[in-house]
Structures are given as C-alpha cells and as structure tokens.
C-alpha cells in the first residue's frame, strides 16, 4: 500500500502527511512533484495542506493547472482514491473535482485550533466504521468557510455527500462549534462516486498520541484497508 503525496511550491504539510503514513500507519509514501505527470502506481493520492503557489488569486486557483493535477483528475476518473486536506480541499474545489468553494472564514481570522467533527458516512474508503463517531482534529486555515449555491447544498445533502460536520464534543452542530461559518457546518465532502474526499481539518496532525490525538490515524487506516481490499479483490 502506497500513498502519493503531492508537493506544490508552497505546500507545507507534505512531510507531516508522509510522517503519519510511514511512521504512524506503516505504509509507503511517494512524493509527487507538481510537474510530475505520472503518479507512479500509488493507491491513494493525498493533496496536503499549505499555501500552494502562495494562495495567489485564490487558494488552489493556480495549483489546479499544474501537470500533476491532470494525472490526478484521470486517476480520480478511473476511481482512484483522492484525498484533499485543507489546501488540498481548496484545490479539489477549484479543479471542479468537488463542488462549491472555500471562502474567507466568517471571523476573518486564521483559525488554528482543535475542533470536533461528526462523521456522517461509514461506507466510504476513508471512513469505514466511523459513522456517528465524533472525531477530534486540528484545523489551521483562513479560507475554510465552505459555500455553494442553495441547489448544490441541497444536492449534497440529498446524496449524502457531506462526510464531516463541525460539532461540539457531544456531536451537536451549530453555534460556536462551527469555527469558520461554513454552510451546513460542512468540514468535508465527497464526490458522488465516493472516491474523492475534501476536508479542512488535518488528520495527519493527529495521528500520534504525542501530537495530542490519534483520531486522524483512523482515516489513514481506513484508506489503507480499502486499498488492500481493492488490490485483493483484483
């Protein structure tokens, strides 16, 4: 099982993802440079957090045109697992692989804090066995306020594409539990096929007890299990 971790100029969470994958999970990592057109046969592509291309114009707006993103798009179309975290989520929205957009936090502050998330699906490669679980993860972003037009939001709900919602420690949504003003308390969404996930919180930063939490490791383990099942199932 090998993860591909994409590195754009300005990406900063690539090594954190690599550490979580190699040290905490025990799987392999291949770093994919933004100019690469070949994903090297990885089982899951991670688009990590950071400030790709300096967040110029809009977060993710330039990264979406990089050569590696063409390969990622083809990989996703073939059903490959693509996982955008923080800036990676912004890139996936800009690339049209996920609907909607992430705008400036309603509070206008860069938010760097622990949040709680309610997991709404357990039939996805990313979240097996996690439905209804309240996970604790860090966020670190200024543009994490998910917005889409009312029709898109209704469609996301109808098709159960909302995977994570900001909530309090008991799993209740609303009020202060939402750190950025995100519509419908959305912290993460998936495409209709279920193989492209975007989320603002950082699972790679809570994959070891030394970092204050291990809930992120649950997602990495789920992806590894799903990838093995795919390989095993031929």
């Amino acid at each position: 099982m090998r993860f591909g971790v994409v590195v754009f100029p300005g990406t900063w969470s690539d090594r954190d993802c690599g550490w979580a994958i190699e040290r905490a999970l025990g799987a392999g990592v291949r770093y994919l440079w933004h100019r690469d057109r070949d994903l090297g046969g990885v089982d899951c592509v991670v688009l990590p957090g950071g400030f790709s291309y300096g967040d110029y114009l809009r977060p993710g707006a330039i990264a979406r045109f990089s050569p590696v993103m063409e390969a990622v798009r083809e990989f996703a179309e073939r059903g490959g697992l693509v996982w955008g975290i923080c800036n990676g989520f912004q890139v996936l929205c800009e690339a049209g692989l996920l609907p909607g957009a992430l705008i400036r936090n309603a509070c206008l502050e860069f938010r760097c804090q622990w949040v709680h998330l309610r997991c709404e699906r357990d039939d996805l490669p990313f979240t097996q066995g996690l439905r209804g679980r309240v996970l604790r993860m860090p966020i670190a972003h200024q543009e994490g306020n998910y917005q889409a037009d009312p029709e898109t939001l209704a469609r996301l709900e109808e098709r159960h594409q909302v995977v994570f919602r900001y909530c309090d420690e008991r799993g209740e949504t609303g009020g202060e539990a939402n750190p950025n003003g995100s519509a419908h308390d959305i912290a993460g969404i998936v495409n209709p096929r279920g193989n492209v996930l975007g989320m603002m919180p950082h699972p790679e930063r809570c994959a070891e007890a030394d970092l204050g939490g291990t809930d992120g490791l649950l997602l990495f383990r789920s992806v590894a299990k799903a990838a093995l099942a795919l390989v095993g199932g031929g």
Binding site: L57, A61, G100, A101, Q147
Partner: peptide
Amino acid sequence: ELLANQVI
C-alpha cells in the same frame, strides 16, 4: 477560466 471562480 482563471480570474474569477464563478461559484462565488
């Protein structure tokens, strides 16, 4: 194509 994100 680039300058505006017409979603927002």
